[in-house]
Design a protein around this nucleic acid. Structure first.
Length: 793
RNA sequence: GGGCGGGUGGUGGAAUUGGUAGACACGCUAGCCUUAGGAGCUAGUGCCGCAAGGCGUGAGGGUUCGAGUCCCUCCUCGCCCACCA
């Protein structure tokens, strides 16, 4: 009988559908929570990248179930978002409809590759029964001071016509549509993620995540330890406060810089400098974030005409305006120490400002010295090391009431409101007399209305709905209006893994037990592109929910792994425009679901980027056929010659699966299969073990062969094979014999053979003897089971 | 400029963590079988060489009986962040 993947795969998918194979209940103590980053249900359908990460987690889920664990492995859809809304603007098709169609396609495709999700827990963030809880969480944060409204300069995407979070602006353009992002002063909703900066930083040390992702988060949080210093303005009452990480260099501050947007600029600028400063500010304001970073090579600035007093030496120093100082970081003003800061140095040289050395470098250095040394020309600090000088200066600042220790973070509060339609409405009611009011809980979910015009105007499409705003103020009962903005879709995805724990419960956060039963997530697999958005936001949610008593842990994802990109056959990133996108459906129908799973796992390490090669699919397909054919030569007795290899394979496959090293596990299974193909017959029980080891990788074939072997029920209900350590050791091994480190022969010996015996045998080897002839043996290195090296001269 | 990760056959990649480099697979070559569809089987396949042998993990040094693996110096590629005071 030939290996007919189409009928086999169809057959078992129907069986699994009926048996609800991935379904798991909330009882027991052996709970594992394995999670993949849920997909955005794009109209393009499933991508080979999805297949990669989902297969990986499916494999370990299946193995752990066979090892007796209850594994929660759920699936859902990150269904709100701009693509569906943009499509609606173009075609008039409602986003709900587009999204539903896409979800249906996804579901069908996911089922076609044999993923053992718990379909009973399937969720969609665009479903009112889901976003009801997104809104409930917003209100929870609002009532606890973690959600607030504030006017501030915000990022406005000129393409999407909405504000964006800092995390969604990349190089001055929108992360999604690549259009220019400009600054606008607007009142918006924020989440107070900055309250958690320190804990989000410290928590990274407690999780098993790729170092790269941790580094990106640390960098994004951007902790700087230093001090603030107040500079009195010369001849005025006000002062300028600066932040510095080098308070030890205060004696070397020879000028100050304010960001162009700094509020004090207008007040301190002198009349004869006013025109020039104004022109500079206007020019700076026109620059997009992109231009400002592009122009970083050449610094520019304008003198304000004002002077400040250096508080430690009473020197009068000029105050400048320059756009190399950011209004959003620190205090928006700096003290410039050109001798010990490269940017200040460049600026001072260009504008001929004095440079005063205050740190003695430990050794001769070229250019400007920014390292640590000994304080000089620094009054009370002279002779102190940089570390001691910092401490002493902070003490001095505090004693004199002109500053003190200060830690700043680069991370900003998370701007969560969006002027778009296809998202969860923010459950706030605006009353003319009472201001913003939390929508009463019984009104949740605040449903998205259908009577809207999707066309973006800069205002939320919800503004124009007639039905949506028919509400009264919860406080005074006067007619009121609903908030028209919706939430950033990253709010939806910040808590979805909690919803899986209890998807049918309408009291989702009432009982903590179910959440704590499964959470935190034991293994989370997804793309690295979420390093500073989803993964940071979700951690913030988890910490906040912990503090509010809703969950019993802080970190939500204990172990994280990023799958590498699958590149096109040309080695480039797959993209529609390049025409190098591989459609998994075609591979599934031609070679089978088991083949595509196995192929993607065999390509290389999960975390590496790997080019797709359709020819390679043929290779794994041949392997599956070989396994299939073995059923024709089963014998009852185990074949002695296969036993050691069998136990070695169990050991290797088990540990490789645990470490997500599927490529080498598959190679081992191929070796075993090749060995079985070469023997006269294969023991039935030996074949059974091969089938069990292969089953998580190729579940359809696994089930089919399990049935062929005469077993009732699913192979995944069977017990994962165990190995006998003593049987993983070969009786004899081929040991290399070296003379002066070069291999000159090899011997078949027992792994624990005595040195004398091996040495004697080695000397008897013709080629070895040839290289020993006439030489004096200086030393013999013998490592049992490894190597014999005879050193001669 | 900073951070992280790489550089091994024609290709994707292995290497018991200091012990025979190239497992497994693709591709390729020859033959067989069928007879032309990217099917199957057997053998071969790191490089140079008829061979003996020599050379080989980005380059160069070092440690060691022994280095892809450890230590210096350098080259190079990828990703992320970047005027962050």
């Amino acid at each position: 009988m030939p290996y007919d993947h189409q009928s086999i795969e169809k057959k078992w998918q129907e069986v699994w559908e009926k048996s609800q194979e991935g379904r798991v209940d909330d009882s027991g103590t052996d709970a594992l929570y394995y999670l993949i980053m849920f997909p955005y249900p794009s109209g393009a359908g499933l991508h080979v990248g999805h297949v990669e990460s989902y297969s990986a987690v499916d494999i370990v889920s299946r193995m752990e179930r066979m090892r007796g664990k209850k594994v929660l492995f759920p699936i859902g859809y990150d269904a709100f978002g701009l693509p569906a809304e943009n499509y609606a603007i173009k075609t008039g098709v409602h986003p709900a409809q587009t999204t539903q169609t896409a979800i249906n396609t996804f579901r069908k495709q996911l089922k076609s590759i044999g993923l053992s999700f718990d379909w009973d827990r399937e969720i969609s963030t665009a479903d009112p029964s889901y976003y009801k809880w997104t809104q409930w969480l917003f209100l929870l944060f609002y009532k606890n001071g973690l959600a607030y409204r504030a006017k501030s300069p915000v990022n406005w995407c000129t393409g999407c016509n909405t504000v964006l979070a800092n995390e969604q602006v990349v190089d001055g353009v929108c992360e999604r549509c690549k259009n220019e992002v400009i600054q606008k002063e607007l009142e918006q909703w924020f989440f107070k993620i900055t309250d958690y900066a320190e804990r989000l930083l410290a928590g990274l040390d407690t999780v098993d995540w790729p170092e790269k992702i941790k580094a990106m988060q640390r960098n994004w949080i951007g902790k700087s330890v230093g001090a603030t210093v107040d500079f009195q303005l010369d001849g005025r009452d006000d002062k300028v406060t600066v932040f510095t990480t080098r308070p030890d260099t205060l004696y070397g501050a020879t000028y100050m810089v304010l960001a162009p947007e700094h509020a004090l600029v207008e007040q301190i600028v002198t009349d004869d400098q006013r025109a020039e400063v104004e022109a500079y500010r206007v020019a700076a304001g026109k620059k997009s974030a992109l231009e400002r970073t592009e122009l970083q090579k050449e610094k520019s600035g304008v003198f304000t005409g004002a002077y400040a007093i250096n508080p430690v030496n009473d020197e009068k120093i000029p105050v400048w305006v320059a756009d190399y100082v950011m209004v959003t970081y620190g205090t928006g003003a700096i003290m410039a120490v050109p001798a010990h800061d490269e940017r200040d140095h460049e600026f001072a040289v260009k504008y001929d400002i004095s440079i005063k050395e205050v740190v003695q470098a430990p050794e001769e250095v070229e250019g400007c010295f920014t390292g640590e040394g000994v304080a000089i020309n620094s009054g009370i600090l002279d002779g102190l090391s940089t570390v001691d000088a910092k401490a002493k200066m902070i003490e001095h600042l505090e004693q004199n009431g002109i500053g003190g220790a200060k830690t700043t973070y680069r991370i900003r509060d998370w701007l969560v409101s969006r002027q778009r339609y296809w998202g969860a409405p923010i459950p706030i009611i605006w009353c003319e007399s009472c201001g913003p009011q939390a929508a009463p809980e019984e009104q949740l979910p605040v449903q998205l209305p259908d009577d809207v015009d999707f066309k973006p105007t800069g205002e939320s499409p919800l503004v124009g709905s007639k039905t949506f705003h028919e509400v009264t103020c919860p406080a005074c009962s006067a007619p009121a209006r609903r908030e028209s903005d919706t939430m950033d879709t990253f709010v939806d995805s910040s808590w979805y893994y909690l919803r899986y724990c209890d998807p049918h419960n309408d009291e989702a956060f009432a009982a903590r037990e179910k959440l704590d039963h499964w959470c935190p997530v034991d293994l989370y697999v997804g793309g690295a592109e979420h390093a500073v958005m989803h993964l940071l936001y979700a951690r913030f949610f988890s910490y906040a929910l912990h503090d509010l008593g809703y969950v019993g842990y802080e970190e939500p994802f204990m172990k994280l792994r990023n799958q590498g990109l699958i590149l096109g056959p040309d080695g480039d990133k797959m993209s529609k425009s390049k025409g190098n996108v591989v459609n998994p459906d075609e591979v599934v129908s031609q070679y089978g679901a088991d083949a595509i799973r196995l192929y993607e796992m065999f390509l290389g390490p999960l975390e590496d980027a790997k080019p797709w090669d359709t020819k390679g699919v043929v290779g794994v397909r041949r392997f599956l056929e070989k396994v299939w054919k073995l059923q024709n030569k089963l014998g009852e007795a185990p074949v002695e010659g296969l036993e050691t290899q069998l136990h070695k394979t169990i050991k290797k496959v088990t540990s490789d699966f645990e470490e997500l090293r599927f490529n080498t596990a598959i190679a081992k299974l191929m070796e075993l299969t090749n060995a079985m193909t070469a023997t006269e017959s294969v023991g039935r029980d030996q074949y059974k073990i091969l089938v069990q080891l292969l089953a998580p990788l190729a579940p359809h074939l696994g089930e089919e062969l399990w049935q062929v072997l005469g077993h009732e029920g699913s192979v995944f209900a069977s017990t994962w094979p165990t190995y006998d350590e003593s049987k993983t050791v070969d009786d004899v091994i081929r040991m290399a014999v070296q003379v002066n480190g070069k291999v000159r022969g090899s011997l078949m010996v027992a792994p624990d053979a005595a040195e004398d015996a091996v040495l004697t045998a080695a000397r008897a080897d013709e080629n070895v003897a040839k290289h020993l002839e006439g030489k004096e043996t200086v030393k013999v290195i013998y490592v049992a089971g490894r190597i014999l090296n005879i050193v001669v001269k």
